[in-house]
């Protein structure tokens, strides 16, 4: 498999001049290689939410993506505070975002559930005071099950 695209991005903390750039760049790559609009859309939603979480909750972090002919794998990691209660964090509407963040339109508490809804595979590893890593896979063709 020699046509694998790999990219790495850094995600600065609380910097809204750059927030979303990694996701936008990945969106562009996917559009260029001609994957379906549905895949582009689902990937964009899932990656943007994870990227924004790293920006606002995780003190910034990194994005690593790998694209092969069947799928895109997105790994977004941070070395931030981690998530103490993941079940609670996954609940739609739960958010610890402060007012300053809410005023910008974030903090609906839908990020993690949006990722779950739009990714084909979604995994999250988190430890308090160590950080959070989110794994998102979107397949280019529907997977039969």
């Amino acid at each position: 498999m020699n046509n694998v695209v790999v990219r790495d991005y850094s995600i600065p903390a609380n910097d809204f001049t750059i927030a979303g750039e990694a996701s936008s760049s990945v969106r562009k790559i996917l559009s260029q290689i001609g994957v379906t609009p549905d895949v582009v859309k689902r990937t964009s939603i899932a990656m943007y939410e994870a990227e924004i979480n790293a920006v606002i909750h995780g003190n910034g972090g990194q994005a690593h993506i790998e694209i092969d002919e069947n799928k895109i794998l997105i790994i977004i990691s941070d070395q931030g505070p981690g998530i103490a209660d993941l079940d609670l964090a996954m609940q739609e509407g739960y958010s610890t975002a402060p007012d300053s963040i809410r005023e910008m339109g974030f903090g609906a508490g839908m990020g993690l559930s949006n990722i779950k809804k739009h990714a084909d595979v979604f995994e999250i590893k988190t430890a308090v005071n160590e950080g959070t890593t989110v794994y998102i896979t979107v397949f280019f063709k529907p997977v039969k099950n």
């Binding site: 927030a19 979303g20 750039e21 996701s23 969106r27 964009s44 939603i45 910008m104």
Partner: peptide
């Protein structure tokens, strides 16, 4: 704010 540009692009 700047975030709307990102959302519009995406």
């Amino acid at each position: 704010n700047l975030n709307v540009i990102a959302v519009a692009s995406l």
